[in-house]
Design a protein around this nucleic acid. Structure first.
Lengths: 153, 153
DNA sequence: TTGTATGCAAATGTTTTGCAGAGCC
DNA sequence: GGCTCTGCAAAACATTTGCATACAA
């Protein structure tokens, strides 16, 4: 029981510091810190996978924020590089905190929709390097994988 | 997007044979060959880059086919692997003929929307291999890159 | 205080669905 | 002939925009 409580506590702390990191990244980029934005990044800091606007909205305190504000906040945070977007071709945009050094991608099951992370991405070392040499600026990418997972097969 | 019309016989022949390949691939997969589908694959056989439903519709003979039919045909052909889909996060799905052995991806300019092909894809040799080992079936992917191109910079 | 962010309502744009008639195999 | 495909209309869906008010810096 006590251990359980401790673990819980440490997770909470870890999330708090993740949120703090995000907020200071926002300050750096001159993005105003507002109530809704604070809540949104808190939800994303806790998330284990990319979330859609609707999903994020559903995880916010009822009545605290509008769905439109979620859309606007996500767009802003993505533009400024605080978040990154995944797109699995189902017409829904999902967002996650963008890790600065490395990041991973996901396989999405076409049948049940489950997500599983794929190992680190080699994109930066390969394609992005070539494109930058060609004169492209601000190169970003999304690699999205669809398949049929073990249990749906 | 600029479309060059070429009078050379060899190009016409080349396109015709590309269409034939596509049609026989459809027959193999028991997909019925209808007027609209024939026209749609002909447009895609000629295309130099992925096209959206709307763009394909615009290239069809006026009045010959409905936009809804274009959507349905593309969905069917993508599901069966005859076409592949690109998604640049702008809310529009684009399709191109899926090459069996190798294929390439595109950089899209966030500012002017221009597309440029990236070299061959190493996905099959790397990530897909790992996923298949893990038990995933029918692994497909899309890698979409956004950047600011030389002339827009 | 000043410019930016928010909430609400309504619009937009793409893609999907229902259904009766037409067309492929 | 049977079953699928098509066209038209209308719906569904995610996302965006306009504008008056509320709020962060």
């Amino acid at each position: 029981m006590q251990i359980h409580h401790c673990e819980h506590e440490s997770h909470k702390t870890k999330n708090d510091s993740k949120v703090e990191t995000l907020l200071s990244r926002m300050r750096e980029r001159k993005i105003r810190i507002t109530g809704p934005r604070r809540e949104i990044v808190a939800v994303l800091a806790r998330a284990k996978q990319p979330l859609s606007s609707e999903e994020i909205f559903g995880l916010l305190k009822k009545g605290s924020t509008d769905l439109v504000t979620v859309y606007r906040s996500l767009a802003l945070l993505e533009e400024s590089g605080v978040l990154r977007r995944s797109d699995f071709g189902d017409g829904v945009r999902r967002f996650e905190v963008s890790a600065s050094s490395h990041h991973h991608h996901y396989v999405r099951c076409r049948s049940c929709g489950s997500l599983e992370a794929i190992g680190d991405c080699s994109f930066e070392q390969t394609i992005a390097r070539i494109l930058k040499k060609k004169g492209y600026q601000d190169v970003r990418h999304s690699l999205d994988v669809l398949a049929i997972c073990n249990s749906c097969n």
